[in-house]
Design a protein around this nucleic acid. Sequence first.
DNA 1: CGATATAGTAAGTAGTTACTAACATGGAAG
DNA 2: CTTCCATGTTAGTAACTACTTACTATATCG
Lengths: 201, 201
Amino acid sequence: MEGGDVRKGSARERLLEAAFRAFSEKGYLGTTTREIALKAGVAEVTLFRHFDSKERLFEEVLKTYTFLPKLKGIIPEIRELAYEEAMRIIGLEFLKTLKEEKALVMIMLSEVNLYPEKVRTIHHRFIDEILSTLSSYLRDLQERGLLRDFDPSLGARAFLGMVFSYFKAEEIVKGRDLKEREMEDTVDGFVRIFVEGTKGR
Amino acid sequence: MEGGDVRKGSARERLLEAAFRAFSEKGYLGTTTREIALKAGVAEVTLFRHFDSKERLFEEVLKTYTFLPKLKGIIPEIRELAYEEAMRIIGLEFLKTLKEEKALVMIMLSEVNLYPEKVRTIHHRFIDEILSTLSSYLRDLQERGLLRDFDPSLGARAFLGMVFSYFKAEEIVKGRDLKEREMEDTVDGFVRIFVEGTKGR
DNA sequence: CGATATAGTAAGTAGTTACTAACATGGAAG
DNA sequence: CTTCCATGTTAGTAACTACTTACTATATCG
């Protein structure tokens, strides 16, 4: 989006950030080392002094910008809430995380072909993590007799899948910038369907 | 998958198919015209005689291999079925279509950065089409008083989103080859949640 | 002050890539 | 038979790209 330079922090940090942005906006192959150095405001040779090759820079970018989902942290507080309200928060938090980490999501989708293993690793640390957090929450509710009997892992997939696909269609493919209000309304609709579909009768 | 040649049809057809495969397996930038020609079993210059440039070849590939979703065709027969059974068929048919058209889906996801407009066009003709087909089916059931009141377009998104995300996670990211049985079971679970969550009470 | 680390400038290399030019070949059609 | 037309072969070009080498400048630190 913003083509601006990165002018704070050490050369290494600036390179990592410039590379991260560039890879996410133009893809790995579509990005040149010259361009990254320019954006970072350093000489191209400095890039190769810090990272031996373009590929190692890419690896460092992934290592640096792969985040841990914060959903895990909010689960304890959520167990106190009503089911529907809890799912609303989980869905919205997941969607916001996707939005914040859009650059990383773009890299994952673009680079599945070129670096399947690297992408799989991130996917595992990110999506699978959230998935298992949500399924253990659902299992807990089942054991307390609040939900009907269904595979909680499948349920988690169903719910997060709705949210992810919505994000993919609007933000990634259509290039939109979703507003708070619209996100809330949409998640709300998803929650109503999901909660109604999983409640005990 | 198979690195084999394409040895039937005219040179033009062979080029289109070889390019389609290559683009989907290695991305647009990761594919060379030399490689396409080799796979098609023709001289590289023949490629440029048929298509003026690599980019125009790409456009022709998209034009040629963009398909019309067949979901629309089966809707009439489905209106006769019970809601749950109908959704099962729709979900499974959608998933199978994604599987058959996996190459195109890969291209779409990989090339959002490079050619956003081209990808948007395909997405519109493919996903949006299915989406509106399903929402009109849901609206119909609502009007017949069989479903509770909810935005049918949101409902369609929810359901197809579950299926798409499942496909993305398993086939695209994890590189698996989903078997009939597993697809049926998963769609079945999705359907149960969705149907229960949208039925009139 | 002197050593060390970090950065820049400049020049270049070897490989690749999309794309072109020129000419030869073979088959189908009139 | 001859005229096309689609194709192959060969050679080449201009641009780009990841990466290197060699030398210089600056700032920090003991």
